[in-house]
Design a protein around this nucleic acid. Structure first.
Length: 214
DNA sequence: ATCCCGAGGG
DNA sequence: CCCTCTGGAT
């Protein structure tokens, strides 16, 4: 866990991220709030690419909670068999869809409490939906952000909650909105878990991480 | 702390 | 082979 970087260094880092990618976007495919929620729930411990491959066909059949219930747990399971943890996820998505229909008129609720009360939806998933769909200043900390935050010192912390706080406390307000995707994309393509591509990193000179292989 | 759990990469 | 992937519930 690196030491917390100072304000000026962090500002410079995000200026570079912004210059390289002015409008960073997530890579999870979705067509509405419901499909975003489902896609994020399915993405736990799975790659976006793998989730997209399954949801491309799934969302043609079921892009609303009503249609998902019509498809049923068996049908849903067939669509997401290629995704890890598929049995639990299928069960959760069906139960969650039932709650949306029965309690929210088929809509996706916009409060963190309501989102997190849904089965299979924890703080991280709720934060992604709040940030991406409802445009609220919520910082979801996933495996990439946890790793990048700690390696670089942008947002170090011993657990997810500490990293989330560090992001809110140390990333300048002007960069908060897109910080989530900048950090994720950086973690996915450059600051990878096993063999980081420090040679291609645009913030290498500002990073304390020592394993500068390749 | 442990379980869930398939695909892809190295 | 082993590790990692936008975690959540128990």
């Amino acid at each position: 866990m690196a030491k917390q970087l100072d304000y000026h260094t962090i500002r410079e880092i995000f200026r570079r991220f912004q210059a390289a990618e002015p409008e960073p976007k997530g890579e999870l495919e979705h067509v509405n709030a419901y499909t975003l929620l489902v896609a994020v729930a399915l993405s736990a411990q799975a790659t976006d690419a793998g989730v997209n491959k399954a949801t491309r066909a799934l969302f043609k059949v079921a892009d609303t909670p009503e249609k998902m219930l019509a498809l049923g747990e068996e049908g849903l399971t067939e669509h997401i068999k290629t995704i890890g943890l598929f049995r639990q996820k299928a069960k959760n998505v069906i139960r969650l869809s039932r709650i949306l229909v029965e309690q929210y008129d088929g809509e996706v609720p916009s409060s963190r409490a309501a989102l997190q009360a849904l089965p299979g939806v924890g703080r991280k998933t709720a934060n992604v939906v709040l940030n991406m769909w409802f445009e609220q200043p919520a910082q979801a900390v996933d495996t990439h952000i946890f790793r990048v935050g700690n390696r670089t010192g942008i947002a170090p912390g011993k657990d997810v909650a500490a990293v989330e706080r560090a992001i809110e406390d140390h990333i300048p307000a002007e960069f908060q909105r897109h910080a989530h995707h900048w950090l994720i994309l950086h973690g996915r393509y450059i600051c990878t878990a096993r063999k980081p591509r420090c040679g291609d990193c645009i913030i290498r000179d500002l990073c304390p991480y020592e394993e500068k292989t390749l």
